[in-house]
Simulated assay, not measured.
Amino acid sequence: MTGKLEQIAEVVPPSNDTTSTRRPTSIRAPDDATSTLPARPRTMQGVVGAADVWLRVFRELDRVVDIPCPVLLTGPHGSGKHTCARALHRSGAPDQPFVVVDVAASALRSGDARAHRVAIDSSPERWLELAGSGTLFVSELTRLPPSAQLVLGEALGQAFQRPDACRLIVASELSVEQLRAHPSVRQDFFYRVSVLSCAVPPLRERGDDILELAREFLHATPRPAVSVDAAPRPRTGRARPFSPAAEQLMLSYPWPGNVAELRNAVEHAAALARGRTIRPADLPNHLRALTAPPHLSLELPLEGMDLRRTLDALESRFLQEALDRTSWNKQQAARLLGLNRTTLVEMLKRKRLRRPAAQD
């Protein structure tokens, strides 16, 4: 290769678990697409989430667990491409190394206490050597030098002649269509690495997974010391739960920073909360500002608007106002809104609006 490219790699040593097995040396065809799929994909062991769009990614990964073919993962920053790569590795070659080449030079992510970091030079041959019969994960395809793409592409061409070759997983924030036309991506390498391509959905499309992840992050966040004026801790020692209003706020927010932003918001709230629950006021200010219901106006803003989101926010605002005005008497609130009680109850379920505990 010409020039130097200092990269950082994260190497996860082989597992000491003697019950794990190596990836089979023979390649078998994936199950037929019409076969019955399990409710929980094999690759999702230890992965949080149950949204259909999230499960769909892992069902695709399940099909190549025993086939060491390359995989292309696309999706916005922080959407979980690294999580998907690690999950596929754990299912296919748990006793082999997992090497992350962070070509974006950003902070390494590692949830494995056995992982350690090493500085490596620009030689992709060294990356392949470190990966052994495990997995080599490249975090951003468009930042991978063409010379490195050439070397890795040649290695892929020889992979089916070497049953002990590592699996290459490449990720990108661009779509498959954008990558195909990107000037920094070699066409031959693109077609070699995209044997299986999976689009990882942004967090905003995962529905209730947002709350499940938020609770996971909350329980993993150390609680601050309790001051004399703070509410007493529950005797169980468990973290404060989110209030219904805080949950609704998190579900309404679009999470442009995806999982990383959610984790940051939860840690922020856990540090500030002093009541028995985490309330909207404990979450970062920008969440409340972006999801605040707009003032009713019959004029279309010059910059345009998100009509569905605006109408949904207005609907939530009037529902909340009617319930507050009637002390959560659903029959009276429905009458104020010109609805029957059954319709009101269904709307409350859909929007996950619940009566605050203080008013029970």
Rank of each mutant, 00 (worst) to 15 (best):
L290H: 05
E129Q: 13
L272Y: 12
L156H: 04
V259R: 03
S35N: 09
A271G: 11
T2E: 07
P284D: 02
A131D: 07
D164A: 14
L262I: 04
T83F: 01
R350K: 12
A260N: 08
S327G: 07
A260R: 11
A265R: 00
R90I: 03
G207K: 05
P293W: 02
L150C: 04
D52A: 14
S227Y: 06
G134C: 08
R238I: 10
V47D: 08
T19P: 01
R215Q: 10
R90H: 12
R59Y: 10
P254G: 02
L302P: 07
A313P: 00
G237T: 05
P234Y: 14
N329I: 07
R276M: 04
D282S: 03
T343L: 10
P124D: 08
G92Q: 08
T236H: 05
V101I: 11
L298E: 11
C198E: 09
Q331F: 09
V345A: 12
P201H: 00
T74K: 04
F217K: 00
P356C: 11
F160T: 15
T34D: 06
R56A: 15
P94L: 01
A220V: 03
G304L: 03
R233F: 08
F58L: 03
G257F: 03
D164T: 14
C166D: 04
A119H: 14
K349A: 06
S175G: 14
P38N: 07
F58P: 03
A104R: 13
G80W: 00
I278H: 01
A322D: 12
D52P: 03
A214P: 08
R180N: 09
A270C: 09
T221F: 00
P97L: 10
R206G: 09
V259Q: 11
L337D: 06
F58M: 07
S91V: 09
P202Y: 01
D360C: 14
T25P: 08
R317L: 01
R162G: 07
K81R: 09
G153W: 08
L249G: 02
Q158T: 14
T135G: 12
A9K: 01
V101Q: 08
M44A: 04
A93E: 02
R215P: 01
V259I: 13
P163E: 05
L348D: 00
L88Q: 07
R167G: 04
V185Y: 06
S35K: 02
V118L: 15
Q248D: 01
R23E: 04
V259N: 05
D164W: 11
L344G: 09
P30V: 01
S243C: 13
Q161V: 10
D112W: 09
A265E: 00
C166Q: 10
L311F: 12
A230G: 14
E173K: 08
T291P: 01
R192H: 05
G78D: 07
T36C: 09
L61G: 09
H286F: 03
L272T: 10
R167V: 05
E129G: 03
G207T: 06
P38C: 01
A93Q: 07
T83I: 11
D102Y: 00
R308K: 12
A273G: 03
